[in-house]
Design a protein around this nucleic acid. Structure first.
Lengths: 192, 192
DNA sequence: CTAACAACTGTTAGTCGCTAACACCTGGAG
DNA sequence: CTCCAGGTGTTAGCGACTAACAGTTGTTAG
């Protein structure tokens, strides 16, 4: 059985996160104090930091990265790296239920609206980049390391622009379509 | 005449920055206190914040952005956007005196080595991206806005990877060459 | 040259994110 | 039931950063 202790911990974590996000949306990220979040969740600020290493951490979420990396790996070897990443991303997005997309949108808007959060988010893209580069390496006829980094970085920045546009329009357009269009723009270039 | 007041201000600013960078290199960024920097420069911490809005600001430097943007604008219209950016960057880098490149390298290493600084740096790339996108727009047969953003973002992330590699090897390889190689990797992709 | 103004600066006190030390309480194993 | 590990609150403190006030110094008008 899952001990009472464990259940309590999970519950507390969820409660803190929930109150935090609610406060962030209500009165803004900067204007919300860790003390306030803790009070709203019925704990002390020390407990907050025991569950989340920092104030930003409540908002962050890298759960998708490994999933996408795996999808890239399993794309047919006949696809060039950028196409593989593009199809992996678009496919994952199309498979995502609307409810989940909605929470992704909410988080994206929060992050994009707060400079401090944006900085953190983009910084964490570095890890994602390494992951994608590694995924590319595991496929057939992979380019050398430096080129892999370039491609992974380009793919991520392209995804970022798509999400940017998506969030800026409150999710009006389909994100998977935007991703496709963004990658198309990237591939449309022919040196001349 | 340049008033004594003005000269003093410029001097103080330079002194603060110099001592700050020296301390950062000597004992690390995080380990250096604003109070220490201020003391080393012979001022109070309040004066430090009157000259630099934050501790990171001492390290940041966006002086190159407008120069590069102008170079992009003046590339021949026959070049596609990515090629124009690539040539503008490589050209500017090749024209840069070694002494300046050395300071760029020093700053790059400092920033790349400190997560907090990296985050800020990448965040400031957003501004640079807009600038590049605008520069592309001012050239002949410019793609639509969304596509411009994608291209500018890809170019910047490519530059970032090149600088990353450059700094990781202590500037062993020529940065302009690395930039060329990185862009070549980006253009080498052919959807298939 | 001096008086008055404006700009520059230091001091102090405070907020907020975050950490460390210690004491207290409570769930779980024997 | 007892004992212990793990979770929690309290307090105290550091460092980045800000606001308010007072003192000093360059500038400028008379």
């Amino acid at each position: 059985m899952t001990g009472l202790r464990e259940r309590k911990k999970a519950e507390t974590r969820r409660r803190i996160q929930q109150h935090a996000l609610h406060l962030f949306r209500t009165k803004g990220y900067e204007a919300t104090t860790v003390e306030e979040i803790a009070a709203a969740a019925g704990v002390s600020h020390m407990t907050f930091f025991r569950y989340f290493p920092s104030k930003h951490a409540v908002v962050e979420n890298d759960d998708y990265d490994p999933v996408i990396a795996e999808l890239i790996r399993s794309r047919p070897a006949s696809e060039d790296p950028l196409t593989a990443i593009r199809r992996a991303l678009a496919g994952a997005l199309r498979a995502m239920p609307d409810a989940e997309l909605a929470t992704v949108l909410a988080r994206a808007r929060l992050i994009l609206g707060e400079p401090a959060l944006r900085a953190r988010q983009i910084e964490s893209q570095r890890t994602t980049r390494e992951l994608f580069a590694a995924a590319i390496a595991d496929r057939g006829d992979a380019p050398p390391a430096f080129e892999r980094q370039v491609l992974a970085a380009a793919a991520l920045s392209t995804l970022a622009v798509a999400i940017d546009e998506w969030a800026a329009h409150d999710g009006a357009e389909n994100l998977a379509d935007l991703v496709d269009r963004a990658f198309a723009a990237l591939s449309a270039v022919r040196p001349g």
